[in-house]
């Protein structure tokens, strides 16, 4: 019997009778990280890392939830589970499931390159690796983060010199704070600020002990992190003269760069070389591809001698 199987609700571990990142209401959910496509509402009980807990409480309100530290082991039914850093967003984890010497790892979303905020990705040896493949095509290769953040700082400096505010569109959890933390290490041309939705999440992470720079009111020449929804609201009227940039892995594609003044290719997911490196580092012979370009990446892996399939 497979340790993890595909169910309509999400990934299911029959030997432990729990689900991983389910999208429909189930009694027991192990959650890899706080993004809404992994931590959904309505579960009987949640189990996640200590870094993820405050984020899902902030998003989901009153829930029954328990947290574990990275590396801590717990027996659930016939299996032993543990959480290991995934380098995707603060608190994000790969979930290791073991029974009688057989090991499966469900990686959730992950990023191999380190950043100034997240716990660094840790390769976990296993027999079967469930990998995400959001950017599982060889057209996706990221520049080092330092290069992208320096380019962002330079764009901001140019805007600030004209008295124009710089707006960077980013996910409110993870990407936004990673940019704040990354920029904080550089010589900055002005103050940092956030849209209220972003600020609320940033505050949750500060309270959880993540080191993040101070953010203040929007002022001319500031760099403001906002969500696309925020920019479509009346809040955007208060920005004054501004230019808009987007920060995402999707900015690698010309079609996605339309409608912004500047695009920064900055992803919280592994690029193609990163996915390959992660797969290799696990030593797994069987790989299951989830999300994004899973068919193409499974095809690629089969060509390299892996037993690979797309779920």
């Amino acid at each position: 019997m497979d340790l993890i199987e595909r169910r309509p609700e999400g990934l299911y571990c029959p030997a432990g009778d729990f689900w991983i990142d389910p999208m429909r209401a189930v009694p027991r959910a192990l959650v890899t990280h706080g993004h809404s496509d992994h931590a959904a509402r309505g579960m009987g009980a949640y189990l996640c890392t200590t870094g993820t807990l405050p984020v899902i409480r902030h998003r989901l309100g009153k829930i029954t939830a328990e947290a574990m530290a990275y590396g801590e082991r717990r027996q659930i039914g016939a299996v032993t589970v543990s959480f290991h850093p995934a380098g995707h967003v603060p608190g994000s984890a790969q979930i290791r499931v073991e029974r009688g010497g057989e090991v499966w790892v469900a990686a959730g979303d992950y990023k191999v390159e380190g950043d100034a905020l997240c716990e660094a990705f840790e390769p976990v040896p296993c027999d079967t690796f469930l990998t995400e493949t959001t950017f599982g095509l060889p057209i996706f290769t990221w520049a080092p983060e330092a290069e992208v953040l320096t380019a962002m700082r330079d764009w901001w400096a140019g805007n600030a010199a004209e008295g124009v505010t710089s707006v960077v569109l980013a996910y409110s959890f993870g990407k936004a704070q990673r940019i704040l933390a990354g920029l904080a290490g550089l010589d900055l041309p002005g103050p940092l600020a956030c849209h209220p939705t972003v600020e609320a999440v940033t505050e949750v992470l500060r309270a959880a002990g993540y080191a993040l720079p101070a953010t203040g009111e929007v002022s001319p020449g500031a760099l403001v992190i906002a969500t696309p929804q925020g920019m479509a609201s009346d809040w955007a009227l208060s920005l004054g003269l501004h230019r808009v940039a987007a920060a995402s892995g999707w900015m690698a594609l010309a079609a996605r760069r339309k409608g912004v003044d500047r695009a920064f290719v900055l992803s919280d997911h592994a690029d193609f070389p990163g996915l390959n490196a992660a797969v290799e580092a696990t030593g797994a012979g069987r790989v299951i591809c989830l999300h994004g370009y899973r068919e193409a990446f499974a095809l690629w892996l089969r060509g390299r001698g892996y037993e690979a399939e797309a779920w």
Partner: peptide
């Protein structure tokens, strides 16, 4: 199949 997927992604 991988080359075709790359082409489709970029158009």
């Amino acid at each position: 199949g991988v080359a075709a997927a790359c082409l489709a992604a970029c158009g």
